[in-house]
Amino acid sequence: MTDSDTPVVHRSGHVAIVGRPNVGKSTLLNRMVGQKLSITSDRPQTTRHRIAGIVTRPDAQLVFIDSPGYQTRSGGALNRVLNRTAVQVAEDADVVVLVCDARGWTPADERIAKLLPADRPVLLAINKVDAVPEKARLIELVNKATACRAFDEVVPISAKTGRQVPLLLDLCAARLPEGPPMYDPDSLTDRSERFLAAELIREKLFRRLGDEVPYDSTVEIELFEELPKLRRVHAAILIEREGQKPIVLGAGGERIKRIATEARQDLEKLFGCKVYLELFVKVKSGWAATEQSLRAYGYE
């Protein structure tokens, strides 16, 4: 039998991307897919939902699942829901990628590593290696991490620049079970445009507002109209207290205009068409007070 006669094995499955907040999980998902699907900021709790990024190749279809950063310090209903989502994403996956920051292995990394399932491949992606030119520091990190648990592979990467990300993708693909694709080859995510619109607006809140308000806010899409060359979106920014309203609006409405402009530009890139976006601010006290109220807004 010649090489050309050898049947091509196709692999398909889910790859969970997990880790503590701000290690670059969402940046890695976006880099893998080649499209901005998962929102990013330098604040914890930016990612609140499970979101899939689909990579289709001739030999494999990889469904990468971004997860909320596992919270080890803060309590409350929202963090309980986020932590449960992070653990569930790992338990449901065929392969797990634990992302850590190259600048140091922390007790939070260790706690998450020990929570991961022992019956499937777990790869360690050491992100932001550009920030640590000294090899000795990376070796020290690897020693600490592998003392905590065994990893199938340890890969230093830079999600920001793409360094060694193709290698990580290959290593994940090789460990998926054999099977046909689960999604259409042109699919990039399992989420709707309506969901992505809410997330991109929320990203701007995390980037443009102060320390407190982003964590007390969420975005609710009230109207999403899909026309041949236009998306019409009306969205409400929900906040906890009346006193937070002027912070979101800014002087003369300047801040909310900037948030709307930046969100609209990102949405037009993502959807490939013009977007008409209107933002409103609404006080909704207690929207995140209980797990039941969180479910009403699409959490968990």
Rank of each mutant, 00 (worst) to 15 (best):
V96T: 13
S67T: 12
R80Y: 11
T46I: 03
S38C: 14
H234K: 14
L196Q: 08
I221Q: 06
S187L: 09
P133V: 08
E222T: 14
E225Y: 02
D59Y: 13
R103H: 10
P156F: 03
D119P: 07
I139R: 15
T290A: 09
S187Q: 14
D66F: 02
A251P: 02
S158E: 08
K36W: 01
P68T: 05
L37D: 02
D170A: 14
R11A: 05
I239M: 07
L141H: 01
V55C: 10
D42Q: 14
E222H: 06
A86K: 04
K269Y: 01
G162Y: 03
V9K: 14
L267N: 01
L230W: 08
R43Y: 03
M182K: 14
Q61M: 07
S192W: 07
P246V: 06
T290L: 11
K229H: 12
V132F: 01
W287F: 02
V281A: 08
C172W: 00
A90R: 05
A260I: 01
D92L: 10
L62V: 12
R50G: 05
C148P: 12
A235Q: 01
V275Y: 06
G19V: 00
Y297I: 01
A118K: 15
T46E: 09
E262V: 00
D94R: 05
I112R: 04
K25G: 02
E222I: 09
M32W: 03
P156T: 09
D130H: 09
E140C: 02
G286A: 07
S38D: 04
R31Q: 13
P156K: 10
Y276P: 03
G24H: 02
V132G: 06
L138A: 11
L196K: 07
L279P: 05
R194C: 08
E268N: 05
R11L: 04
L270Y: 09
V142Q: 11
V281L: 05
R137F: 07
E178W: 00
L138Q: 12
L238D: 03
G24E: 04
E212W: 09
G53T: 06
D101M: 07
A118W: 06
P166T: 02
E91A: 14
Y215Q: 07
E91H: 14
A131H: 12
Q35L: 12
E225G: 15
A86H: 06
I221N: 08
L279A: 06
P156Y: 03
A288P: 00
D190L: 09
L230A: 10
T40N: 13
T106F: 05
F195G: 11
D216C: 11
E134D: 15
G250V: 04
R48H: 04
R43C: 10
G69A: 03
L167K: 15
R255T: 10
I237N: 11
A118G: 12
R295A: 12
L167F: 10
L116I: 01
